[in-house]
């Protein structure tokens, strides 16, 4: 018994500095259930279930998921940041309404770009979501407060 490094042949990932092949990706699994073989059928006397050999933890923190998560954070949470910044600036700038609205809208794209770059600069994708959502929430609260 004991665990051994067993690769499920589900997917294959080739990672190198230059990027990733969009294709099949492979997960190294470090564990398997004792007395378990991949295709063993269900036995009544053993309350065991056939499980595919996926290590979910590794899967979640693997690169493609990481990247997809950050990308969504950049695209959607980044938009929230830009939108809330735009809305807030239009309200609080000391210029006339038309002028501050114009300025806020013109600047909003730089905020969006900055937020997107931020999403790819932090260490983990969770931090990206956390930071961007937090910032947009704070800005939104300010908007409600000012209004």
């Amino acid at each position: 018994m004991g665990s051994s490094a067993h690769s499920g042949n589900l997917y294959t990932l080739n990672a190198n500095e230059n990027g990733y092949h969009l294709g099949k990706f492979k997960v190294e699994s470090q564990q398997f259930l004792p007395n378990q073989h991949r295709h063993q059928p269900f036995h009544l006397e053993q309350i065991t279930v056939v499980l595919p050999n996926i290590n979910w933890r590794a899967f979640i923190s693997s690169q493609p998921i990481n990247i997809m998560s950050r990308s969504f954070a950049a695209i959607f949470a980044g938009y929230l940041v830009a939108a809330s910044a735009c809305g807030l600036l239009a309200l609080i700038m000391p210029l006339s309404a038309a002028q501050s609205t114009l300025t806020a809208m013109m600047l909003s794209f730089s905020f969006y770009a900055a937020a997107a770059i931020w999403a790819f600069s932090v260490r983990t994708s969770w931090q990206a979501w956390r930071d961007l959502l937090l910032i947009s929430a704070i800005l939104y609260i300010f908007i409600l407060w000012v209004n």
């Binding site: 830009a82 939108a83 809330s84 735009c86 809305g87 807030l88 600036l89 239009a90 309200l91 006339s96 309404a97 038309a98 501050s100 609205t101 114009l102 806020a104 809208m105 013109m106 909003s108 794209f109 908007i143 209004n147």
Partner: peptide, 29 residues
């Protein structure tokens, strides 16, 4: 290029400062 269509992409300034009344915004401009 983004700025030319900013009223469509980022209307939030108009929404907060003019309660969404784009016509009033344009009239003031």
């Amino acid at each position: 290029g983004l700025i030319t269509l900013m009223l469509m992409y980022m209307p939030w300034g108009v929404i907060t400062a003019y309660e969404g009344d784009a016509r009033a915004f344009r009239a003031e401009l």
